[in-house]
Design a protein around this nucleic acid. Structure first.
Lengths: 253, 253
DNA sequence: TAGATTGTTAATCGATTAACAATC
DNA sequence: TAGATTGTTAATCGATTAACAATC
């Protein structure tokens, strides 16, 4: 049980085979780049080629790949098919994961029809909703089922991943039911912070937050000159009513 | 032009009023938490209250807020309405931003109907597609318009933000056209790395990447015992054909 | 004043990057 | 061998966190 590769005594305290989070988040990007290279008939690629395809710099890519092992050949580069397989195995998408989608509104509908899942290691096994008007409706090749069937579906289909596409209101309740049914990874599209017990992973995709981050930078581009003219933020310690405050910044010249 | 707040000589080299990226990404989360508190009639909140609502720890929240200014009162907390306004102003969502969505498939359709945008500082001014079969179709209150009208719409509506919901294929071309029309912030849902010139901000939302990150961690949960039994990665330097490799890991006991 | 809570400091941790020895 | 490129080191940078002085 000694590690195959030597490690300094004071090396990063990652658990055996553990990989830094930032690296984990990039592995799927590398996987996609490798698939594209493979599709275009490229057999071998250097870290520079790969990095360009993935939109990162080559030092970062090599460092990331070094956590997986030594899959390249010095002086040559990486065998595209071989590296692709190794990354897919590391991520865990050489097997298929069963996924349920809960909340079949516009977004749930869109995800159900998204063809990208099937080809990338995921299989949507059920579309669930609690609305009787939706249950039984067809979406692509699937039929919307009653959320009440959750426990049974999770058990029989061995579902590990749940996707929440409900409105904010019922999201925590849905989340709790998913966890109770045995789901241990959740992708949340509802605009709310969900709490889950330890051992359950949750990731959040939030459209309006992404737009707000863009808006922050946009504001600093278009209004740069005007902004420096705006007086420093007033330090008002008497906590004024917000009604007294302007509702729009005066950015005009 | 001297800063109103003193700063150590060797302080972080952020530009005037610049805020760390990690903090910028959390401001919208705080804004939403404040809105929720406001809606529930809370007038004042401590950093602890706010941190709980936002799902972060209170030290991080206070540090984040300190980049904006001193908007709290020691011994008391933060005035919810006042802080909400200050954060909204900092992000830039006290004004409305015009947005175009390009690619009105399932996802574009879902985003067009997403009510969260209008209430959060964004106004969808056009749904665009190049498919003649879609042009003129109604989506909610809007009508899909020809992508060829992009330049005119961007100019007349002062569009700064574009959302790409096309398939991967046309995404770079759409991106280039958006940039050429004057759009300087792009939210990309297409599963492809886009290149943009300096000065254009791009953010990416990728559903299958999010699922793959979950899968990575999931694999390490369910297969933990089994995984330690799997032999160390073989270090094969002869770059074998992937056909020779197993297509599924044997994780079974 | 006593109690509460902010805003800031400083230590720690994790991520990025350039450089280069190892080696194909 | 000479040229190319990996894998790793070490420096730097940025983010997180606990602790606490400042102060309401």
């Amino acid at each position: 049980m000694t590690p195959a590769r030597s490690r300094r005594p004071g090396a990063p305290s990652r658990t055996e085979r553990g990989i830094p989070e930032a690296t984990v988040a990039r592995l799927p990007v590398y996987l996609r780049a490798l698939t594209a290279l493979s599709d275009s008939g490229t057999a071998t690629a250097s870290s520079e080629d790969l990095a360009t395809a993935a939109g990162v710099n080559s030092a970062k890519l090599r460092k990331d790949l070094s956590y997986l092992g030594s899959y390249g050949t010095r002086g040559v580069g990486y065998d595209v098919e071989y590296l692709r397989y190794q990354i897919a195995r590391e991520i865990g998408v050489t097997q298929d994961w069963s996924v349920v989608i809960v909340g079949i509104g516009n977004l749930g509908h869109a995800l159900a029809n998204y063809s990208g899942f099937g080809t990338r290691g995921f299989r949507i096994v059920a579309l669930l909703d609690a609305d009787p008007a939706l249950i039984g409706a067809r979406v692509g090749e699937m039929v919307v089922r009653d959320f009440a069937e959750l426990d049974e579906i999770v058990a029989t289909e061995d579902v590990a991943i749940g996707v929440i596409t409900t409105p904010a209101g019922p999201a925590q309740e849905v989340c709790d039911r998913l966890v109770a049914a045995g789901v241990t990874s959740i992708l949340n599209f509802a605009p709310v912070v969900l709490s889950v017990p330890a051992g359950v992973d949750i990731r959040k995709v939030d459209l309006s937050i992404e737009l707000q981050i863009l808006a922050y930078h946009e504001q600093r581009k278009s209004g740069e000159a005007a902004l420096t003219e705006v007086p420093e933020l007033p330090v008002i310690n008497g906590l004024p009513k917000v009604d007294d405050l302007p509702t729009k910044r005066g950015v005009g010249a």
